[in-house]
Design a protein around this nucleic acid. Structure first.
Lengths: 174, 174
DNA sequence: GGCTACATGTAAGTAGTTACATGATTGA
DNA sequence: TCAATCATGTAACTACTTACATGTAGCC
């Protein structure tokens, strides 16, 4: 279901696009919150067309099919966002590791956290570079709000990992 | 794979336990980072036993099977945590909604964010109650680090939703 | 002519969800 | 005896991943 909604969202902001286009858009944006490959996207688009949420607007070279969102599709997206209250389908290997931390020796746990903090630091720099590149835009475009949220979350993970590592190291001093 | 690791972690901290026990432990802890029902857990435990990661230590009434982690299982868990670098398998409907925000009218987006903020507020209170109830413990037990992380993340989501709603409302004032 | 990017698909397998199914023990 | 809880499982389906498969158009 979420994939369907994500694709409707992409079609809304990008205008008519092919499965190929949508796959690339997906990779550079929504991929940070939800994952799907072209092998899942193409069949889903066919099902969505069969369900009347999108239509093949144009057939181009190389078998290219350009899809456009229908009124029914736009309605589906809007309903999902507004009527279906705040669901929290959420899965994170990072948080799973936090649960498993006590299964390691303190020095191992601290080392793991330091490595994680470093990795979040790299990620944070990447995200901030993206924001800097987009700051010339005035309009808050697609991904603007999500990028802000992603930066906050990454910074939080980095801080948490660093502070928790320090805490563990502090309580182990001999 | 993650489910397997999660179950090995639970067995490590809880000691020998049945599928039923593990399902309940899972629900009250790791469920916040990863989801699985008993219908997935029972078959997985059987596969893990076949692979030598756990053993049936004891058979009790009502067909109860008590599993214990083996040395091989403990090794598998440790290796996964330490050698497999910081992976970020991550999926969040909350962040997906952030991406889709620009597909709504500003007043609708702001209302959605206010509703989300309220929902995160409720969640935050629940998590803080859990922390308060556990504060009498001195040892940082299972879930201690993950709970701290969860509280930070929930607060972040609440703040982000509130601030973003205010920002949208501010830029729409006539 | 050959490389790269465009473009769409299917097949096989794993992971996860929902629903169905069954039965035993405990305590009121 | 009845209800709740303990306890384990399977079946059918949906979602997702990895790998395979094929062919076209544009550019140098």
């Amino acid at each position: 279901m979420s994939l369907r909604i994500a694709l409707l969202g992409l079609l809304t902001v990008s205008g008519p696009a092919s499965g190929y286009d949508l796959t690339k858009l997906f990779e550079s944006s929504i991929n940070n919150a939800w994952q799907a490959r072209h092998s899942q996207i193409y069949p889903e688009l066919n099902k969505m067309a069969a369900d009347g949420l999108i239509t093949v607007e144009e057939e181009g070279p190389r078998g290219r099919k350009t899809y456009a969102i229908t009124d029914e599709g736009a309605h589906e997206l809007r309903t999902w966002l507004i009527e279906k209250g705040p669901t929290r389908s959420y899965r994170s290997e990072g948080v799973l590791r936090a649960f498993l931390l006590p299964t390691l020796e303190p020095h191992e746990a601290a080392a793991l956290l330091r490595a994680e903090a470093a990795s979040y630091g790299v990620r944070l720099a990447e995200l901030e570079a993206i924001r800097a590149a987009k700051s010339s835009w005035k309009e808050p475009g697609f991904g603007h709000y999500a990028l802000d949220l992603g930066i906050r979350q990454t910074r939080l993970m980095q801080d948490w990992a660093e502070e928790t590592a320090a805490e563990i190291e502090g309580s182990t001093r001999s």
